[in-house]
Amino acid sequence: MTIKHHLSDELLMAYAAAELPEAFNLVIAAHLSMCDECRARSMAFDALGGAVIEDSTCEMSAGSLEACMARINGLSQAPATGMRRGDRVLPAPVLDYVGGGLEAVKWRALGMGVRQSILRIGDKGASARLLYIPAGAAMPDHGHRGLELTLVLQGAFRDEADRFGRGDIEVADASVEHTPVAEAGEACICLAATQGSLKFNALLPRLAQPFFRI
């Protein structure tokens, strides 16, 4: 797999610092599961966190070591956990949210064969969804109120700017209006996180927007 579109340093640092909404964290974790290059860069940002933590100290209370030892004596051994691995399409973090593989996704039809499944995200700052676009079909023309991250999990799509295949991540913000179209061949499945709701430009999709929660 050749991934061409990667995460920016800014997003990787914000992920390392745990400063992003959950939905973005999920898309980033999914990309890191598929992309060795960004995984290595993400580990560098963790190392930078290690350097930051080395940089200042603050005195612990008297008896804190003893208190910590008492805490440790009350702990049971952490249970051994198996390898977290994904399947052919969904990386492990996405499997966790779906509660199973692709067959467990509860799709809702958006019309023209396009389907979506909104993932249950704890914090409301941003939302995440899986999108299913039949080969050759287009996503409705839309703009964004905030940041949108789209990760391709199967197939490929093109928009006005470029082509995005499995593992590629597209970053769009309020200045981008685009119409992603799935390539011929396989249906395109994407994981997308958006801050605020997408706003559709065509009349009909906009009327349908509250209903479909897009």
Partner: peptide, 17 residues
Amino acid sequence: RIDALRKSRRPEPEDLP
């Protein structure tokens, strides 16, 4: 810190092989 300061959940990437 995520738990203590009620920050957003942060899913981890899958395990390295």
